[in-house]
């Protein structure tokens, strides 16, 4: 579903050039859930934003659904992958009602009015239909993140890119949102790329995880490894130790 070859991302110019992602390659199969784990600043979010099409500094090759995509995406390419952001307080327009938030992707893509899709979108993420009338500030953090997930799914993409989807939420709400994401993946056969610094979230959600450090992948862990806490590199051992104290 996703293939990335020699992805490099650098910010700045000349002497200040900073290589954030250094020639990484990976692929994700259809229906698979890949985790990328690492400390803050290691480049994991940048990889995700390049995949989504938000960052345009990358070089290399990215293909989604077997077709190579450019830095400027066409509507069809944007339809393939949508993203859920880290902070649900900043990712929803504060002056749009929820119904508008959910209809807007359809309207922006010029695929009809979009209002008729709102009840179904809310139901899909387990929110009552009455929420359509509310403003984001009348919702809790967990409810907002559900709305953000619903918005990403309104266009029915095959790939969902998740940028620390639960790190801004309360621990009790984190589990709810993660379970919702797992259920949705099962129901709709979605492909996930989940970025997190929290190994327990990755272990709960992903079939496979890549450990990232200073812009390169240092380790790859499969499901059994994640459950047993087995690692193949020194750095991921340290990461494991610090997250499962």
């Amino acid at each position: 579903m996703i293939e990335v070859e020699n992805l490099e991302v650098a910010f700045g110019k000349g002497g200040n050039l900073k290589q954030v992602v250094k020639a990484v390659s990976f692929s994700v199969a259809r229906g698979e859930s890949l985790g990328i784990v690492g400390e803050s600043g290691c480049g994991k979010s940048t990889v995700l934003r390049s995949l989504a099409g938000l960052d345009r500094h990358w070089t290399g090759r990215i293909s989604l659904n077997r077709q190579s995509v450019d830095k400027n995406r066409t509507i069809e390419q944007l339809l393939l992958a949508q993203m859920v952001f880290q902070d649900p307080y900043g990712s929803i327009h504060p002056r749009h009602r929820i119904e508008r938030v959910l209809a807007e992707p359809v309207r922006a893509m010029k695929k009809g009015g979009g209002w008729d899709r709102v009840p179904k979108a809310l139901e899909r993420v387990g929110l009552p239909a009455g929420f359509a009338e509310r403003f984001p500030h009348e919702l809790s953090g967990g409810q907002r993140q559900r709305v953000a997930i619903a918005r990403a799914l309104v266009l029915e993409p095959q790939i969902l890119l998740l940028d620390e989807p639960t790190s801004a939420l309360d621990v009790s709400v984190q589990a709810e949102v993660l379970n919702l994401l797992s259920d949705l993946r099962e129901q709709q056969g979605l492909t996930y790329v989940l970025v997190s610094h929290d190994l327990s979230v990755i272990a709960h959600m992903c079939d496979r995880a890549l450990v990232m450090k200073d812009g390169v992948f240092v380790d790859e862990l499969d499901r059994a490894d994640l459950q047993a806490g087995r690692t193949h590199a020194e750095y991921s051992a340290v990461l494991f130790q610090s997250s499962f104290l």
Partner: peptide
Amino acid sequence: NTDYVAAARLYGASPLRLLFLYIAPM
């Protein structure tokens, strides 16, 4: 630079749409 404008770019909102429906109201 907010996330909701980034999200809008991802679902293909045109620059004019971003300007008048997302940025100007704020």
